[in-house]
Design a protein around this nucleic acid. Structure first.
Lengths: 110, 110
DNA sequence: CTGTATCCTGATAGATACTG
DNA sequence: CAGTATCTATCAGGATACAG
């Protein structure tokens, strides 16, 4: 149960790393756990696992286990997850226009 | 200093009540403190003051003190604040399409 | 009417170590 | 390689009381 559509949507993307994950999985489909951790640089192992799990629960990400040894698991955006990309883009674009670039450590969106 | 444009923008709208405030001030300009508290129903006095103050600091809201007795203060969206309305709308719209309506306590956007 | 200070609680993130 | 468990730090939100 959510307050409203906004809160409901925000809960899906609020997490500190979730947008990064959306962009990451959007540009690099079939990413493996280690790939993601490497690309997100400062993210913690535990936090990555946590945020991915939430996104799976929210049906934003799907997990494909190859049942190989050593373990081989790949992650992808679901259709629902992909549909969030343009939403996130709008937020980024507003930021690009309205946030002082000197205050940005890095640029995420085009 | 922010991580990126997305984080920077999110910080402005992340607060639990900020979108409500944006919509509220957008549809009812020149709102007074009591008005806002009444319309947001379950918000706490202290939290309202806090979130408004942050939005003033972020240059999203402007405060007009009439210097009357008893105190008379009105709040408005700044130009920057108004420019966030379409961004927030996009988030709401995505929610309208993707969140089960049965799980929503109320509807915020058209 | 508007605003501030104190204290408390729950959620989120991170460091670290352990498991199959 | 992928995932879990424990413990800790931080912060946002809220209850309540006080102040100009």
């Amino acid at each position: 149960m959510y307050e409203n559509e906004f809160d409901a949507t925000m809960q899906l993307i609020r997490g500190k790393w979730k947008i990064r994950l959306i962009y990451e999985l959007d540009s690099n489909p079939h990413s493996r756990f280690n790939n993601l951790q490497r690309n997100l640089k400062t993210i913690t192992h535990k936090i990555l696992a946590e945020q991915i799990q939430q996104m799976i629960d929210d049906n934003l990400v799907e997990r494909h286990d190859f049942h190989e040894q050593p373990l081989h698991v790949e992650y992808n955006l679901t259709k629902k997850g992909k549909s969030l990309v343009p939403v996130v883009d709008v937020i980024c674009d507003w930021g690009l226009e309205n946030i002082d670039h000197l205050k940005l450590r890095e640029t995420l969106c085009n």
